[in-house]
Simulated assay, not measured.
Amino acid sequence: EKGELTGPNPVDRGKYGSKIHLLTERTGLPLSLAISGANVHDSQALIPLVDAIPPIRSRRGPRRRRPGKLHADKAYDHRFIR
Rank of each mutant, 00 (worst) to 15 (best):
residue 65 R to N: 04
residue 70 L to M: 12
residue 19 K to V: 04
residue 60 R to G: 11
residue 31 L to I: 02
residue 61 G to Q: 08
residue 2 K to G: 01
residue 45 A to T: 09
residue 81 I to A: 07
residue 73 D to W: 06
residue 39 N to A: 14
residue 9 N to E: 02
residue 29 L to N: 07
residue 79 R to W: 08
residue 62 P to G: 01
residue 36 S to W: 01
residue 7 G to I: 08
residue 5 L to T: 03
residue 28 G to P: 02
residue 74 K to F: 00
residue 36 S to T: 15
residue 4 E to M: 06
residue 46 L to M: 13
residue 58 S to L: 15
residue 51 D to V: 01
residue 59 R to K: 07
residue 79 R to V: 04
residue 45 A to F: 00
residue 14 G to C: 09
residue 57 R to A: 15
residue 34 A to M: 04
residue 3 G to Q: 05
residue 24 T to G: 04
residue 12 D to I: 02
residue 25 E to W: 02
residue 58 S to F: 15
residue 30 P to D: 10
residue 6 T to N: 05
residue 65 R to G: 09
residue 34 A to E: 08
residue 42 D to C: 03
residue 50 V to W: 03
residue 34 A to Y: 04
residue 26 R to M: 11
residue 60 R to W: 11
residue 23 L to E: 06
residue 37 G to L: 00
residue 40 V to H: 01
residue 33 L to V: 13
residue 80 F to S: 14
residue 2 K to M: 12
residue 61 G to Y: 07
residue 52 A to M: 04
residue 65 R to E: 04
residue 58 S to G: 15
residue 59 R to F: 14
residue 45 A to Y: 02
residue 42 D to K: 02
residue 31 L to V: 02
residue 37 G to D: 03
residue 52 A to F: 01
residue 57 R to N: 09
residue 28 G to V: 10
residue 43 S to W: 07
residue 46 L to R: 14
residue 68 G to I: 08
residue 56 I to W: 10
residue 63 R to W: 08
residue 40 V to W: 00
residue 50 V to D: 03
residue 34 A to W: 06
residue 47 I to P: 05
residue 23 L to Q: 07
residue 19 K to S: 02
residue 66 R to P: 00
residue 27 T to D: 07
residue 12 D to T: 14
residue 40 V to C: 09
residue 28 G to T: 09
residue 19 K to R: 07
residue 40 V to G: 01
residue 61 G to T: 08
residue 55 P to I: 04
residue 82 R to C: 05
residue 41 H to T: 09
